[in-house]
């Protein structure tokens, strides 16, 4: 009993390490990081840089899933926010204001989700589905259905620039993770989210404002999606309302689940989600290096997520335990 459990974060970390090693064996150059023009180059840096956007979404999604919900609308919010950025940049708005507008857009979208879930009591899937459907239309409305090209070096720097040799996006997302970790784990906020996800009735009785805490998770998730929209627009230096953030809600959910946070809510693992996002990105890049077309890459992703979901399923665990104990009894 006194043996502490192995932190679930180690499982995706182990998976990530194995995947990196496998890639390294297949292509010895895979793990090499070189310095060019004072910038770091190489596949690991690519993984960090490319994975930064899903990491960001996974950050907010972790909190939503911790409260026992799910936010399907983040992909659409990314599209809206990207469109807003393109629009503002075209008008010559200063960069800080553009970023503030992007985050604000996301926060507002999250507030709508939070209202529907926490106040009106809709199922999270249903509530966030609405914005998932309508959001892309709103994004297209903003861009007028065009792909808006963003010609601003300052804005492009956000996702493509380097600071101290490390991609700017990695700084931003990494910083946010550290910030979130401090805000959640150095205060009691993390415990509050977990308590509400574990047992809402008990949390309510213990004196927590359960509904407000739940709503807050969606607002944070929206804010992350808003910032992610800015990064996505900056990355391709364009806003495409059709494609921006496409399927990213799936990647974010997968990253969180792979990272060890159960979809039923409760205990969450912020760093696990980060590792989960990296694992997905490594998988994608590795498959690409193996010559698998990016269009087919979702197949192993799907298999991975089903496998992880099965590993977490209570039924399967009980069955496995039964198998184990039967074997133990026979011996």
């Amino acid at each position: 009993m006194s043996v502490r459990r192995i932190s679930p974060v180690w499982w995706p970390a182990l998976g990530l390490a194995l995947m990196l090693v496998a890639n390294g064996l297949f292509d010895p150059g895979f793990l090499r990081v070189t310095i060019l023009d004072g910038h770091l180059y190489g596949s690991p840096v690519d993984i960090l840089n490319q994975g930064s956007r899903v990491m960001l979404l996974a950050l907010g999604m972790t909190l939503v899933i911790a409260t026992g919900g799910v936010d399907l609308s983040v992909g659409s919010v990314v599209a809206i926010s990207a469109s807003v950025c393109a629009h503002l940049v075209a008008r010559g708005t200063p960069l800080p204001l553009v970023i503030a507008a992007a985050v604000g857009t996301g926060l507002a979208a999250g507030a709508i989700n939070g209202l529907l879930v926490a106040r009106l009591g809709l199922q999270p899937i249903v509530a966030t589905l609405i914005l998932m459907v309508a959001g892309r239309g709103v994004a297209q409305l903003i861009t007028d259905g065009q792909v808006l090209i963003i010609a601003s070096p300052a804005f492009a720097f956000l996702a493509n620039g380097y600071v101290l040799g490390i991609p700017c996006a990695v700084w931003i997302v990494g910083g946010l993770f550290v910030l979130a970790h401090v805000a959640l784990r150095r205060t009691a906020a993390g415990l509050f989210f977990e308590a509400v996800g574990e047992n809402e009735a008990a949390a309510h009785i213990a004196g927590l404002a359960a509904a407000r805490i739940k709503a807050l998770a969606y607002v944070v998730s929206g804010g992350c999606a808003g910032l992610c929209g800015a990064l996505a627009a900056s990355h391709v230096q364009a806003a495409d309302a059709y494609r921006a953030g496409e399927n990213m809600e799936l990647d974010a959910i997968f990253a969180v689940v792979v990272g060890g946070t159960a979809l039923t809510g409760g205990r969450f693992f912020l760093w696990g989600s980060l590792v989960g996002a990296l694992l997905l990105q490594t998988l994608t890049l590795g498959l690409y290096n193996f010559g698998v077309s990016p269009a087919v890459a979702p197949v192993p992703k799907a298999l991975l997520i089903v496998a992880v979901a099965l590993l977490q399923a209570e039924v399967v665990r009980r069955w496995a335990r039964g198998l184990w104990s039967r074997k133990g009894a026979a011996a």
């Binding site: 914005l131 459907v133 309508a134 892309r136 239309g137 709103v138 409305l141 259905g145």
Partner: peptide, 9 residues
């Protein structure tokens, strides 16, 4: 056409 998405939403 994107109005259709918004209206449907």
């Amino acid at each position: 056409s994107w109005w259709s998405r918004i209206v449907v939403g």
